[in-house]
Amino acid sequence: MRRPRTALLAALLLTWAGTASAVADAPAARPARSTVRAAAQVPDGVTAGVAVFDRRTGTFTEQLNASTRFRSASVVKLLLALDVLWNRGPAYTVPDADRARLEPMLRSSQDAAADHYWAANGGSAVISRMVTRLGLSDTAPPPAGYEGYWGYTALSARDTVTIYRYVLEQAPAPVRDFVMGNLRRSTRCASDGFDQHFGIAGAFEQPWAVKQGWSGRYAAGTCGPQGTAAAEPAPAAAGVDLTRPALHTTGTVGADDRAIVAVLTLHPAGTSYGKAYTDVGRLTRSLNVPGAARPAGTWYGTWGEGVNVRRAPSTGDDALTRLPAGVEVLVGCQRRGQVVTVPPYTNDWWAYLPQYGGYVSNIYISSPDNRLPDVPECGDRQP
């Protein structure tokens, strides 16, 4: 079935509102499939600070606004964890009470754990201590009037590299192994329901370790029904932009944590989570990251909201997660499965998304034809 052109599609979708059970809302038009840019580029409307450090050569391969201060969002949880673990010896074992908080804080970005350590360890004093201990150049506590908001800590891309270099090269082995081990176990769904496997986690094959950050009023429901926009104050003017939606990806990539990557971004007010997620992914994929392996497949845009990723190509099979609305996804292969109808579309082709480990109906992939033209069929040994 050949799909109608954009203008006709917009009219058809307007008449269809409320009839599809698989998605809550549909956009007026389906975006075209993107192409990955060959050189490092910042998507239109995005403000970015970038640093990529090659630990093998001791040099930066990328630096863009590397000293610019951004609000840290949850990336500051690295400093909260290091403050708790500071000055520990080679025989140190993390106490059970701290392990119960630190593990979900590092793996799933749990805010309750960060709230606990911020209150228990002196709030802004944590940041002041870590600035001195690590020799950070651009990091600063939250501005006056926002002392209780740990996510408003100022942070730069180059300071983020310094933090990771301390963990990898100077911290006692038990601290290094605990922090990096948890970052390698980053969960797709964060504790607040947001899909946090954007940027590094989507751009490169494992091994990687990530600590992500997001702040702002994004659309809810990116991983499941619990996803909600974080409640934040309406900030006053300050030296660091506290208003535009922030989305950060930081961590290490490659064998022996060869490359340290820090991508800090701000997006125009009203940007959807899926759009920010996609833009950070495109920027991260364009970077020169030594030792990184790029995943095989073709990147496509998607449409719809609340689209389920299924374990098998059938709406009756288990839902593994939900796609952020309008996010770009990597398609590894495709196969025929259950016929899906979302008026005016009918399609029996399903796309396998290797980074999610499941399938979505090709109806939700931004392509003019039912069968994606440049994606192979899944073989017998493929999922």
Results as ranks from 00 to 15, higher is better:
Gly151Gln: 14
Met130Asn: 03
Leu136Trp: 01
Asp138His: 04
Arg129His: 06
Gly151Lys: 12
Pro141Leu: 06
Gly122Tyr: 12
Ala100His: 08
Glu169Ser: 09
Gly123Lys: 14
Ala114Gly: 12
Thr160Val: 13
Leu168His: 08
Gly135Pro: 07
Ser156Val: 02
Ser124Met: 10
Val161Glu: 07
Leu106Phe: 06
Tyr146Ile: 10
Asp159Trp: 00
Met105Gln: 02
Leu168Asp: 01
Arg133Cys: 03
Gly123Ile: 13
Pro141His: 07
Pro143Leu: 14
Thr160Gln: 11
Val167Ile: 11
Ala112Ile: 04
Ala154Phe: 07
Leu155Val: 12
Leu102Pro: 09
Gln170Leu: 03
Tyr146Ser: 15
Ala100Ser: 04
Leu136Met: 08
Asp138Ile: 00
Thr162Ala: 13
Pro104Leu: 13
Ser124Ala: 14
Pro104Cys: 14
Ala113Pro: 00
Glu147Thr: 13
Tyr117Gly: 13
Gly151Trp: 14
Gly145Pro: 09
Arg133Lys: 12
Met105Trp: 00
Ala125Cys: 07
Arg165Asn: 00
Ser137Cys: 01
Leu136Phe: 02
His116Phe: 11
Met130Trp: 03
Gly148Thr: 08
Tyr117Cys: 13
Ala144Met: 15
Ala157Glu: 09
Asn121Cys: 14
His116Val: 09
Asp115Val: 06
Leu155Phe: 14
Arg158Asp: 13
Trp118Glu: 15
Trp150Gln: 13
Ala119Gly: 12
Val161Met: 10
Leu155Asp: 07
Asp115Ile: 03
Ala113Asn: 07
Ala144Ser: 15
Gly135Asn: 13
Ser108Val: 10
Pro143Asp: 12
Arg99Lys: 11
Gly123Val: 11
